[in-house]
């Protein structure tokens, strides 16, 4: 198409002959047909629902009797609802701990694995660190619940051999939060690790050689050269991991049921209880809208802060 435009004298916007115009229209129709199925599914199962959630959040509805418009009542109620406010504090605490550990451990392991000379050794460690991702979070929550069991669990057994007292892993607030963080990080750190290994191994070789010739040590090379060069990947990992961690559900739901008390009740669990157990669909929608707003705000802040430290070559 562009070639024929040039042949017509390089006009800025070449007039199309009727034949070409018909051809382009047919191409357009083909394009719409090709995106049709995806677009329809996204409209019905994402765009309409998000609009419906927003609308529903101004109603009171138990799915049986007709919905009743209540204005901003749901939002006023949740701002004063200790369970909801507490769930956001809990979720934020768990999510920040999880993401920081994922980034630090993922980076440390990636750097150390990259130092191995033999490729089969690198491959072996990569495979082992990926293995926890092959269990479902539900399955992992089940067996980790046994492993961290206070009386019979294997963790406390080995701690006792070291002369340490039994730790109430799942039966105290601090213990339960720590256990959920550990289980989530144990299972998912392989994701961050794989991302960082890919980024480190794609660093330009000539730059690294030049740095080595200048006599920089490994620590200096990492902080002054490698880390800035892979900062876009670090940024990507922190955004994706935080969005995922803010939606934590399986581990607390299965291992602690949100307890003891409400110490590990996350916002997604509150939404689940409100909507699908108490049948408060309007109130549940309002909480889900606030969660969405919090996610957008957090991602926005990450993008703003990223201007200061993310380096795009």
């Amino acid at each position: 198409m562009s070639a024929s435009g040039l042949a017509m004298g390089g006009a800025v916007r070449p007039r199309l002959r009727p034949l070409q115009r018909a051809r382009r229209r047919r191409e357009g129709a083909f394009g719409y047909a090709m995106i049709g199925a995806s677009f329809a599914l996204i409209i019905v199962f994402t765009l309409l629902p998000i609009a419906a959630s927003l609308g529903l959040s101004f109603f009171s509805w138990d799915i049986i009797s007709p919905p009743r418009f209540v204005g901003t009542e749901n939002y006023e109620r949740l701002a004063a609802d200790n369970h909801v406010v507490n769930s956001f504090v809990v979720t934020l605490g768990l999510a920040v701990a999880i993401v920081l550990l994922q980034l630090v451990i993922g980076m440390a392991l990636a750097v150390l694995v990259q130092q191995r000379r033999r490729s089969w050794v690198r491959g072996l460690f990569r495979t082992i660190y990926y293995l926890p991702l092959l269990a479902s979070t539900a399955a992992a929550s089940v067996f980790m619940g046994y492993i961290f069991n206070e009386r019979f669990g294997v963790v406390n057994y080995y701690l006792a051999l070291l002369g340490l007292p039994d730790v109430p892993w799942l039966t105290s607030s601090t213990g339960a939060s720590a256990t959920i963080v550990m289980v989530a990080v144990w299972q998912s750190v392989g994701f961050t690790f794989v991302l960082f290994v890919a980024a480190l191994s794609s660093l330009p070789r000539d730059v690294l050689e030049a740095v080595a010739l200048d006599g920089a040590g490994p620590v200096r090379t990492f902080f002054s050269v490698k880390l800035p060069l892979i900062s876009p990947t670090v940024f990507f990992a922190s955004v994706v991991n935080l969005i995922n961690a803010m939606q934590l559900f399986d581990q607390p739901f299965i291992m602690t049921s949100g307890g003891p008390g409400t110490s590990t009740t996350t916002t997604t669990m509150i939404i689940y209880q409100t909507a699908f157990q108490n049948l408060q669909f309007g109130y549940g929608s309002a909480i889900s809208m606030v969660l969405f707003a919090v996610l957008i705000a957090m991602t926005g802040v990450q993008f703003l802060v990223a201007r200061r430290w993310v380096f795009y070559s």
Binding site: Q247, F281, S288, L291
Partner: peptide, 13 residues
Amino acid sequence: MVPLQSTIIPVFI
């Protein structure tokens, strides 16, 4: 960007 939690109630309906 839309989390599953923010669409699940209408999808359920």
